[in-house]
């Protein structure tokens, strides 16, 4: 089975300093691929390159057999790649409900959206996702007043409202309590039934829980790839990452 997302020989440098150095990755549909690596390994930059926030210096990115290298952020998002940011990015001045409504992006045309006043399919989906993320009671409050855990879940819910084929989650459990982490892990396993996920995460316990494939990045390139067992047994990985970073 061909990969849903295929990254080939990606390079990116900032002012001549290489950050991504010939990174390649193939993500199979309906799997969870975890990307790990020490700080500065290029994980978030890779996310930026996939979602169009940065343009690669060279290399290609294919999504569902289409070349998406160099497209704008909104064009890539429309093709079905949703992203949750490392620092939770929600609209703080809007209510939780409005945040979810914004994320429902079936109709993206500015002129047509002037005549959209709520739509039944959207409301059903909103209720469903709010229930999944335990936000039903919080729908009317301003998103800026949510706790950190709720904000993380709101942003994951927003990505779900978008209904993407691939979800990129950048540190979805950073700053969450043990209980919230377990809940997030359960949610991700449930999502795997219908979606493909790429998760950047530092928490190895969480990675062990959810990952089908683990990709280790180091100095902007692929250091190792395999199941969590294989990765934990890999000497080079232990050297650069697990030994020094696990806490």
């Amino acid at each position: 089975m061909a990969g849903l997302l295929e990254i080939k020989d990606l390079h990116k440098s900032f002012d001549g300093t290489p950050v991504i150095n010939g990174f390649s990755l193939e993500v199979t549909e309906m799997t969870v691929c975890c990307v790990v690596g020490p700080n500065g390994a290029g994980k978030t930059t890779t996310m930026d390159l996939i979602t169009g926030r940065q343009k690669p210096t060279s290399g290609t990115i294919h999504f569902a057999e289409e070349d998406i290298t160099g497209l704008g952020e909104h064009e890539i998002a429309r093709r079905g790649i949703g992203r949750k940011f490392q620092v939770p990015a929600v609209f703080r001045e809007l209510s939780v409900r409005q945040n979810l409504e914004v994320a429902y992006s079936k109709q993206t045309n500015a002129l047509k959206n002037m005549f959209v006043f709520g739509d039944a399919a959207m409301k059903r989906k909103l209720d469903e996702i709010a229930a999944l993320a335990n936000l039903t009671e919080r729908l009317e409050v301003e998103a800026g007043t949510l706790s950190h855990g709720e904000t993380q879940w709101l942003e994951i819910s927003m990505v779900l409202m978008q209904n993407p084929r691939v979800l990129l989650l950048d540190e979805p459990v950073a700053g969450l309590t043990e209980g919230e982490i377990m809940k997030t892990a359960r949610l991700i396993k449930q999502l795997k039934e219908t979606n493909t996920l790429i998760v950047v995460e530092h928490d190895m316990g969480f990675v062990r829980e959810i990952a089908d494939v683990v990709t280790v990045m180091h100095m902007g390139t692929l250091l190792a790839q395999g199941t969590i067992g294989e990765i934990e047994a890999n000497d080079r990985v232990r050297e650069v990452y697990l030994g020094s970073e696990e806490h």
Binding site: R53, H74, V90
Partner: peptide
Amino acid sequence: QSKFGLLVQAVRGDAERVRFLGYNV
């Protein structure tokens, strides 16, 4: 009060985030 109105308010808050939801800001 329309979806458009909600979106421009979202753009006011964080234009970058709106782009990643698939809208041409």
